[in-house]
């Protein structure tokens, strides 16, 4: 049977040392057995490596940052849509999800399909609400205190032993071993990300992750657990291996079932030595290591496209255990013309 031709627009082509998931999402989509994918790369910056990778994108367009207002971003997408007729759009940046979730219907009216969590699902997993989240859905989470002032350090010391994790609402996390380090982290984070600053109990164990896809009705369409084998100083996985861990899978299915999660997600968990799992964070989108799931037999980008287009997708339950990914850096040689074109014309 001939493959169905579709046009897929993807953001996050920044495969740098803090990589966006755009490039592996495209790789997955291109390996689809059902789609013949034409790829529109959407970039914010003129040096996103995905722009320069051979045979990755058919067209590239620069789009305005969501911070300049959702309307401008969506209008630019609509303008690109007039030329290119986008069937499915997969946004991959945390900062842009809000704008796309808010404009889901507006895009759908133009026949641009997305598959994103609802604003409620998105907001209830905010880091400063993790304790409530854990209680509501019956998952263990590390104890935490939301810090509004430095004076609350004594509360923190009453409640937890050092070390503690000090985290920003959106990004950044530091391990702090004493009061002085808590203060330093507090000032650094509050200056950048505002209040509250989250102090989290340090749970000793191994960091493990699950990539998953929920269909919005409570079904887990895909789920692959992984352990990071090498972590960079930015906290990014540079190597990982798929695990056979039924407990992690159960936890994932339970959460997706209870929250009716819609779209891609990543669960960050700590597995303690006694075999307990603590939920540290939920990322509301496909993570950058998605290609490991594809390689292990679950093509999550392909399934997400199908869900976005309203297909009936059966849950994938099998994956290859012990598959690894090893990330590497690679220097491409490119001509100035491409850089000039994206910088001057905002499209290639």
């Amino acid at each position: 049977m001939a493959k169905q031709k579709i046009t897929l627009a993807v953001t996050g082509l920044n495969n740098t040392d803090n990589p966006g998931p755009g490039v592996p999402v495209i790789r997955g989509a291109k390996e689809s057995e059902d789609f013949d994918v034409r790829v529109i790369g959407l970039v914010y910056e003129n040096l996103e490596p995905g722009i320069y990778m051979e045979d990755l994108c058919d067209r590239i367009f620069q789009i305005p940052y969501p911070s300049s207002g959702s309307d401008e971003l969506i209008e630019r997408i609509e303008q690109i849509h007039q030329q290119e007729k986008i069937d499915v759009l997969i946004p991959n940046f945390d900062a842009e999800l809000f704008s796309f979730m808010k404009n889901e219907q507006r895009l759908l009216d133009k026949e641009i399909h997305t598959f994103l969590p609802s604003l409620k699902q998105f907001q209830e997993r905010d880091k400063d609400k993790l304790a409530e989240y854990g209680k509501k859905y019956g998952v263990k989470v590390p104890g935490s205190i939301n810090l509004g002032t430095i004076n609350q350090i004594s509360d923190l010391e009453d409640k937890f032993d050092y070390p503690v994790m000090i985290k920003g609402q959106f990004y950044d996390a530091y391990e702090a071993g004493n009061e002085e380090q808590v203060k330093q982290a507090f000032y650094k984070i509050s200056a950048k990300w505002g209040f509250p600053v989250i102090a989290q109990e340090f749970v000793k164990g191994t960091e493990v992750n699950v990539i998953a896809l929920g269909d919005g009705k409570g079904n887990t369409i895909a789920a692959v657990p992984m352990r990071k084998q090498y972590i960079t100083d930015k906290g990014k996985a540079w190597g990982g291996i798929t695990l056979a861990d039924e407990k992690m899978m159960e936890l994932t299915r339970m959460l997706i079932q209870k929250t009716k999660w819609k779209g891609g997600m990543e669960l960050e968990l700590i597995k303690t030595n006694s075999g307990e799992y603590y939920l540290i964070e939920i990322n509301p989108r496909i993570p950058a290591w998605v290609y490991l799931a594809v390689g292990a037999g679950q093509n999550i980008p392909d399934a997400l496209i199908k869900l976005a287009l309203g297909w009936d997708v059966k849950p994938m339950t099998k994956y290859k255990i012990g598959k690894m990914f090893v990330r590497y850096s690679f220097d491409m040689i490119v001509d100035l013309e491409k850089f000039a074109a994206i910088s001057m014309n905002k499209e290639i």
Binding site: L47, P64, Y65, S68
Partner: peptide
């Protein structure tokens, strides 16, 4: 000047 790669908060010239 074209700023290479550095995240430009503004992106495309806005309407």
């Amino acid at each position: 000047k074209i700023t290479a790669g550095v995240p430009n908060k503004f992106g495309l010239p806005a309407k």
